[in-house]
Design a protein around this nucleic acid. Sequence first.
DNA 1: AAGATCTTTTGATCTATATCAAAAAATTAT
DNA 2: ATAATTTTTTGATATAGATCAAAAGATCTT
Lengths: 187, 187
Amino acid sequence: MHLLLKKITEKITINPSLESKIQTHFTRIDTKKSEQLLSANQTAKYLYYIEKGALHNYYYHEGKQVSSWFYLEDQLITSWYSFYSQEPSFENIECLEDCTLYRISYSDYQLLIDEFPAFGNFARLLSEEMTAVLDYFSKSWSFLSAKEKYIMLDEYFPKIELRVKLGYIASFLGISQETLSRIRAGK
Amino acid sequence: MHLLLKKITEKITINPSLESKIQTHFTRIDTKKSEQLLSANQTAKYLYYIEKGALHNYYYHEGKQVSSWFYLEDQLITSWYSFYSQEPSFENIECLEDCTLYRISYSDYQLLIDEFPAFGNFARLLSEEMTAVLDYFSKSWSFLSAKEKYIMLDEYFPKIELRVKLGYIASFLGISQETLSRIRAGK
DNA sequence: AAGATCTTTTGATCTATATCAAAAAATTAT
DNA sequence: ATAATTTTTTGATATAGATCAAAAGATCTT
């Protein structure tokens, strides 16, 4: 919980009353590798803070799993489209390792926003940051070759190759597993 | 100005005092086709509301212009990455037609957010909507063929083919102009 | 209206990466 | 440890879409 509070105070100042409400509304959950936190067609009910572990969201394309993003320690994860719009998600959220998470429900999130302008600012800054990341990412990656994408990977997800299997990374990069294998072999 | 106020009241309730501040801080500008509102390496100072006209943001890749998004009537446009982070932009903003715009500066935007919680909510909902659009878009487009992308275009930018030249659309879709020409000819 | 310039189309060829198939290596279970 | 399963690598072949070049069609300019 301490790390989550620290994460929030990077963006806003928290008074004691808000701090205690955050402690009430975020609840800790411990998960095992390959546990699924959200399935496609469900509406994302929770926003999660990752204290420990790694997760990804993925969807199916022609029967195959495609990783759409990886999330590591000290990050917030949900299906952004679904959480913000409260429409059914097109993607799944899955733990890639055993995780320690803190989650808040959509309704409690709205409650904190209504009650604490500072928390509203946190929520705004969080989605502004997400917009900026997605904006920058989608534009800077679209013209890269398979090899260039692989080289860029570490800037977004440090050491991810050591934590998740090749097929997930290849699907994230939008290339086949065989091509990624050949790139790694330097061919 | 009436249409801008209507746009904002889709998301929040405006009291008279906020209304008058919005009228003060958004200023009308009329631009000509091919006028440039932002250049790469500048930091985005303004957020624009489009009352009339069409714009795009674009960047250069290997010497060629690449459109990264199109914006039409009743939408808000800026370089999201740059406006939110106040870091230099990697893209340009250009008018594709003569436009009627209303713009607010970054500092006035922050001022309205600080002074009016309702406006803070507007700003939050706007970036949540941008996050949702970018999230959904980047995932749903990445595995489409050139032809499928062209078919999807109209859902995002109705009738855009009638308003901007082929090369811009091809660059947005990430395909060559020749390929798009062949797709249109049904080959 | 004629010429100049810009935009789109068509044809021929090339290439990065996909796909299919099978071997090798690594991991997990008994 | 050995077998079973999963993951990664390697080889051979196919293909969507790129690139290059030039013709055709539009749109501006004087």
